[in-house]
């Protein structure tokens, strides 16, 4: 009887043990899966962070480049303006739009000046030719008399 009871108890203990192990295993598994999930989550977050970071950096780079380009253009416009005789104070804030406007104006002026110059040239060429022809008249009359 006792033996039977002990046997039964043993069985129960065995079972409990098994149950316990099983529980432990399940718990471990659960934890494992939670850990993996967490890691995944973290990795994703990290990825997202990196992505936003790179986007931010890219934007930063573009902005910087644009600024640099802007500065470069402004500098070039300033240089051109300096050549034209415009003076700038050290550290003076200059308006690029205004500078560009000035440059365009200057270009138009140059074109007009060029056109005026060519117009003058055209006139002087015409007048020189006509003057020469006037002076040639006596030569031609002599030729005709011959």
């Amino acid at each position: 009887q006792e033996h039977k009871r002990i046997l039964a108890r043993k069985v129960i203990i065995e079972r409990r043990k098994e149950e316990y192990e099983q529980m432990l295993q399940e718990k471990e598994k659960e934890e494992e899966s939670r850990r993996i999930q967490l890691e995944q989550l973290r990795a994703e977050e990290e990825k997202k962070r990196l992505q936003t970071e790179s986007v931010r950096r890219e934007e930063e780079r573009i902005r910087r480049e644009m600024e640099e380009q802007e500065a470069e253009e402004t500098r070039a416009l300033m240089e051109a303006a300096k050549i034209r005789g415009q003076k700038f104070e050290d550290g003076e804030k200059v308006d690029k739009v205004q500078l560009r406007q000035q440059a365009i104006q200057e270009q138009i002026k140059e074109r007009q000046e060029q056109a005026r110059k060519l117009g003058r040239l055209s006139k002087s060429m015409d007048h020189f030719e006509r003057a020469k022809r006037e002076e040639q008249i006596s030569m031609l009359m002599e030729l005709h008399e011959k």
């Binding site: 006139k123 002087s124 007048h127 020189f128 006509r130 003057a131 020469k132 040639q136 030569m139």
Partner: peptide, 21 residues
């Protein structure tokens, strides 16, 4: 017309120009 004559015309071109214009 000869170089001299041409130079002379060039020198007096303003006078000619006035008349031609």
């Amino acid at each position: 017309l000869g170089k001299d004559k041409e130079n002379e015309i060039q020198k007096n071109l303003k006078k000619y120009s006035k008349r031609f214009e």
